[in-house]
Design a protein around this nucleic acid. Structure first.
Lengths: 152, 152
DNA sequence: TCCATTTACATGACATATCATATTATGGAG
DNA sequence: CTCCATAATATGATATGTCATGTAAATGGA
């Protein structure tokens, strides 16, 4: 048994496990983890174009235009044309989107507690460091740097 | 900034980063990471029913029947009815499936080296321990136990 | 100014994932 | 033996993720 293979299986399993738990918490709100990520990102980082938004997202970092379209259809987001660039749009949360983002923040607190019950801060920090070293130079690392600029 | 939130963003980013790198390595073979997981699992664990297979998979652990169907259509897998249970099937690799599984093993070796270049064994073990503690009792942990029985 | 290149976004196509439900077979209670 | 709960698999529906391609607008050099 090679350790690296088990390592990546473990990361995959952890991601899926956490995703499932988080999705279960969000389901009563009619939201998914990807939607939650967009809602909180827009709430914290103001009006963004689709391209700018994608630089913050870990999920769907390629081009989230269809994700945005669905959220627009549900009334969480409005798009206004960018006056300086007719190709681009500015995405802003609607009132309903802001309310959903607030609820997501509450759910995230619960999820963070779920993690804190199982792991101490030292384990968490060490794992973050290890994984960041693994990702150095990848596009995913850049999304993390955008989300957590103070730590990079 | 809460550490647990950054922790789960980092796990998501690491999983996606690794998935992308692995997918790029597999693409010339016309395979995806999920297909690779099925191929190597069947090669190592002999004929399995779809249900049994799902207990080994981290990907698509719910019910991989459509994944199997696509791999069958490509000629990698044959299904034979289980003589003891007419509902169930036994999945076996075709000759072409065996050859693909061998190639996947080679790719995995390369991927493992990619990881070993970036992390030492101690980092890897510590991270595995932390993530396994996080997942204790979840279905994902059970899939890992099936894949790596000696360590549990 | 003109045109090639780049950028922002959309969309087609396909492969995961996951929930809910349907279908058929098994096995046990009565 | 009959009926019912359960199990194995399949499928519809929808969301996510990714690659390739298309369209229109901006940009910068000749």
């Amino acid at each position: 048994m090679t350790l690296p293979k088990r390592f990546r299986d473990t990361i995959l399993a952890a991601q899926r496990s956490g995703h499932r738990v988080f999705a279960d918490m969000l389901r009563p709100l009619g939201l998914t983890p990807a939607w939650a990520e967009v809602l909180t990102t827009l709430q914290e980082n103001g009006p963004l174009s689709i391209r700018e938004l994608s630089h913050f997202l870990i999920c769907e970092a390629d081009h989230p235009s269809r994700l945005i379209k669905r959220m627009e259809d549900k009334g969480f987001i409005t798009r206004t044309p960018d006056p300086n660039d007719r190709r681009a749009v500015k995405l802003v949360l609607t009132e309903s989107g802001e309310a959903a983002a607030d609820k997501v923040a509450g759910i995230e607190t619960g999820f963070n507690e779920w993690i804190e019950q199982r792991l101490n801060a030292d384990n968490v920090s060490t794992t973050i460091q290890t994984l960041e070293r693994l990702m150095k130079g990848t596009p995913e690392a850049r999304s993390l740097e955008n989300r957590y600029p103070d730590s990079h």
